[in-house]
Nucleic acid binder design. Structure first.
Lengths: 235, 235
DNA sequence: CGAGTTCGATACACCGGTGTATCCGATACG
DNA sequence: CGTATCGGATACACCGGTGTATCGAACTCG
């Protein structure tokens, strides 16, 4: 997934009278370019010029799409984290692996691995996110946005989690959101470790183990094993 | 600990002929100033000038102590993370709270709270560390340093952890370093959550709970117990 | 097809930080 | 007590990014 020049290549769509950029794509393209630039140089060290250069635009284009670098940073973060959530949702729908013939412990572990496969440890994104978080901690409104996003994440993953657990014959003891939060924290915390150690397989292994144990600690075997869903709607 | 002007105040030590800065303190002072500036503006957005201004020095002074901002950032991070480790070591020695008269579960939880009290969730430091980590992920040599530091952290906390557990009548199942790693990850992951939610008490609570559960999951009652105050329920 | 609007490019004036070269004064040392 | 040294201050030349103002071309819609 190296660079994507996008200078004057791949027009091909729409009316190719002039090879130049389509009308409404600029914002998107700039955002994509920004992802790369931010990941490479860090937000603070990135300049409007770099982003424009990477995307094949001029600073004029930038300023007619964003008020400031800061604003763009936020827009980019929102777009990307949203995309990631959508990805998770999608993956959740299409995931159906056969776990039969395994012991409960094996099931649990296999399930964990499955889920962790969907939420990849992406260093590019990690860098951006870390910096954004640090940035947000200095800015009340960004902080709000971050908190809101965390809630959205929980809203998304908790049902998925419950479904998956149900399939494994387990269910959450207590508030499922608590487990959700814990898993998010685990993801964050272990991601760094994995990334620092150059994707060491051992780090991955420990990560899976930790996830499994935590899930085990927050859940119990589900005795009502038919597909009877508990009502308990806590929203 | 708000700002520390340090312009021409509080010399008082050594030979106070002139009220101005002592000879060898510059580096330290600049480092301290940098902590604040980095925390406020982020590393990327910080300039040599800002740091010097904050510390009451000129850029000349800076460049005769550091080769570049980058180098200083690293020096600062090393110094601070080292100081934090020292702090933990110290606290570990002097911590001796009486846990007698508690059930095993209560003990475990109390012990966890005790330990977590020592490793505070400091948002200033969090910001710096997050940004440094992101930065280090782009720089192989910094990455090495980060990995090395992680090992040092483990070397420091694992013995402490084992001692504490012993006092609680528990011991680690398997490799203690694995538990150490897990706890570090937990610390990182839950710190963000606490900070985002403005030090919400509930977040703290969940944090402690998660720690407790993980410790419980990775340990077992220590049967080879020497001086117990209470009987060990086999639960 | 033509008028209007929008979006991106170009140009410009400006600021602020960088790094280095040089200088000065205080400390160390014989 | 005088000299060498070193660390910090001052000054300088330079680069690079910023934001805005203006212009032209492409798309829209009647």
């Amino acid at each position: 997934m190296p660079t994507s020049p996008a200078r004057s290549s791949e027009p091909a769509t729409g009316t190719p009278r002039r090879v130049t950029k389509r009308r409404g794509q600029t914002r998107r393209r700039l955002l994509d370019a920004a992802v790369e630039v931010f990941a490479e140089n860090g937000f603070g060290r990135s300049t409007v010029e770099q982003i424009c250069e990477r995307g094949g635009y001029t600073r004029g284009a930038f300023y007619s799409n964003f008020a400031s670098l800061d604003e763009m940073f936020f827009a980019m973060w929102e777009q990307r984290s949203g995309a990631m959530l959508a990805h998770i949702r999608l993956a959740a729908d299409s995931s159906s692996i056969d776990l039969s013939g395994l012991t409960p412990a094996e099931k649990l572990r296999a399930g964990t691995e499955l889920v962790l496969g969907v939420v990849p440890v992406d260093d590019q994104w990690y860098r951006i996110n870390a910096e954004f978080t640090a940035h947000a901690l200095r800015n009340p409104s960004l902080k709000k946005a971050l908190a809101a996003r965390e809630n959205t994440i929980l809203d998304t993953i908790v049902p998925i989690l419950e479904t998956a657990l149900h399939r494994l014959g387990r269910r959450v003891v207590g508030d499922p959101r608590v487990l959700g939060r814990a898993l998010v924290a685990l993801h964050d915390g272990t991601s760094v470790q994995c990334l620092i150690e150059d994707e060491d397989a051992a780090a991955r292994e420990l990560r899976v183990e930790l996830f499994t144990r935590v899930v085990a600690a927050y859940t119990e075997p589900d005795t009502t094993h038919t597909h009877t869903h508990r009502k308990e709607g806590s929203s």
